[in-house]
Nucleic acid binder design. Sequence first.
DNA 1: CTGGATCCTTTTAGATACTG
DNA 2: CAGTATCTAAAAGGATCCAG
Lengths: 117, 117
Amino acid sequence: MTYEEFKEKVGSVILTDEGNCPVTPVVQMLQGKWKLQILYELCIKCPMRFGELKKMLKPITNTALTNALKELEADDLIQRIQYNEMPLRVEYSLTLKGQDLLPVFYSIMQWGIKYIP
Amino acid sequence: MTYEEFKEKVGSVILTDEGNCPVTPVVQMLQGKWKLQILYELCIKCPMRFGELKKMLKPITNTALTNALKELEADDLIQRIQYNEMPLRVEYSLTLKGQDLLPVFYSIMQWGIKYIP
DNA sequence: CTGGATCCTTTTAGATACTG
DNA sequence: CAGTATCTAAAAGGATCCAG
């Protein structure tokens, strides 16, 4: 896509909400130190358990992981399922909405490959 | 792109850096309350002057705008050109690297259109 | 006009200990 | 195992005043 094409599309499609950036709210939703990494892990393996995620995101604390997971669930990007076994088991997985972020991740990744050494 | 396709591509292409999310560093770079909005404004109109940007991002303060612009420039996403006229004029524009974010913005936008009411 | 400098408030993240 | 609760540290953001 060229610069002019973008201007044209954005200008007509969604620049209606008082000139605000249509990208910002989405990125706000993904902000925080851990959310994207969690989503990424769930892209690679899904579902995953709490402890499994914690191990992958190594230096993360319980508090941080819990908070991030809660916010992602509140935004309906991931789903939490609790199995009342002994010991307790909880599994997190991407929702359809969350899976729909894959193309976004991929385009970001393509940019990163080009520009991040 | 499907879930499986993503896994395959990501797994082979870039999952080399110790399992860390390849998307995160890019998003880190775009984090902060104002950076994306600035880039977006520059997508719509480029170049723009300091005061012009300030007007578009209405409640922003000088400090916040200055800081965001500096960081964007440090990441080589925008370019600052100063004209020593009287009164002083400074123009900001997207670099090629910055313009290359357009497809990313567009894919985020598509997602937003689908899921944000 | 385009910021710099300073101070202050708010938000976010980390450490530690504890529970069903 | 999967969290909660509480506290502290750090970072981000805002307000105000000043300068080339």
